[in-house]
Design a protein around this nucleic acid. Structure first.
Length: 277
DNA sequence: GCCCAGGGATGCG
DNA sequence: CGCATCCATGGG
């Protein structure tokens, strides 16, 4: 695989470690659109359009540096996959999701998005987030940016209910009220244990959501978010029937260590896409 | 009409 | 800690 940066595009030749559909549909991002061989991705106030051809993927954007980092092109995924393929649980999931990359998305966007994600389905999560963008985000040329913290502070509990947040509306309101821009800034440089503590003390954020924020918003790969699908994965692979997520989180994190975040994404995509249970 | 969704908060022991 | 119950709402 070879990645070339141009003035207003990134071109990925022989993309054996990058597949657009897999990367967008493995549940780490909610603002995207897929139309045939093209796709549009939004992050923060930025946008990129991706075109998949036989021998290459072209990423058109006015912010090449942002999306080069966003798609994490400086990381060699063939190494990671080779390690994880040796794991008996993971080998087929890694082959299936060979082109998944873990995106480096915006921290604040991930906090808001994954509070909405709790006990929710992806179609509805996408709708709610799109509503917040259209009503509170800055209008760009022909799309809306994700609202900033200061912009979201204008939203009321009723606004969040109108966005379809349901019982998460009060939680979101309280968390947005309490958060400051300094908090978001400081979070990135905090001690790892303190990052988790800070997040979990916010309303609407428990262990799973906190780990998603750490993984997708800060790039921590040593965390293993356990949702209903990973619960199914665990029970199938260990031939158990537990619902104890703390136990599952502990055991899977121990098993995969610093590759936990990657392993989790391969599992999630493989099981969910094939509706396995 | 039912079950489920990238779970969290709260209360109980 | 571990477990039970409740929580809005739309998708399939």
């Amino acid at each position: 695989m070879k990645v070339v940066k141009n003035k207003d595009s990134i071109v990925v030749y022989n993309p054996e470690d990058f597949n657009v559909v897999q990367t967008l549909e493995c549940g780490q991002i909610f603002r995207f659109n897929i139309e045939g061989n093209s796709a549009t991705v939004y992050s923060k106030d930025k946008r990129a359009k991706l075109y998949t051809y036989n021998d290459r993927i072209e990423i058109k954007t006015s912010d090449v540096d942002y999306f080069y980092n966003f798609f994490d092109f400086s990381t060699d995924y063939s190494k990671i996959k080779n390690e994880l393929k040796n794991d008996t649980f993971l080998s087929s999931a890694v082959k299936y999701g060979y082109g998944i990359r873990i995106l480096k998305n915006d921290l604040f966007e991930m906090i808001v998005s994954f509070i909405i994600s709790a006990n929710n389905n992806i179609a509805r999560i996408k709708k709610s987030i799109e509503y917040l963008c259209q009503h509170f985000g800055t209008k760009m040329t022909d799309y809306y940016a994700f609202p900033t913290l200061d912009e979201l502070k204008h939203a009321t509990v009723v606004d969040y209910k109108d966005a379809g947040l349901g019982y998460r509306a009060e939680q979101m309101y309280e968390t947005i009220s309490k958060l400051t821009n300094k908090d978001i800034e400081n979070l990135k440089s905090m001690d790892e244990a303190e990052q988790f503590k800070f997040l979990i003390n916010l309303k609407g954020i428990g262990e799973k959501v906190a780990n998603c924020i750490l993984l997708f918003g800060i790039g921590r790969k040593d965390v293993f978010p356990v949702d209903t699908w990973i619960n199914k994965v665990y029970n199938r692979l260990t031939n158990t029937q537990t619902t104890n997520r703390k136990l599952i989180t502990r055991e899977l994190t121990n098993r995969y260590g610093n590759l936990s975040g990657y392993a989790q994404q391969y599992f999630f995509y493989y099981f969910r896409d094939n509706k396995l249970s």
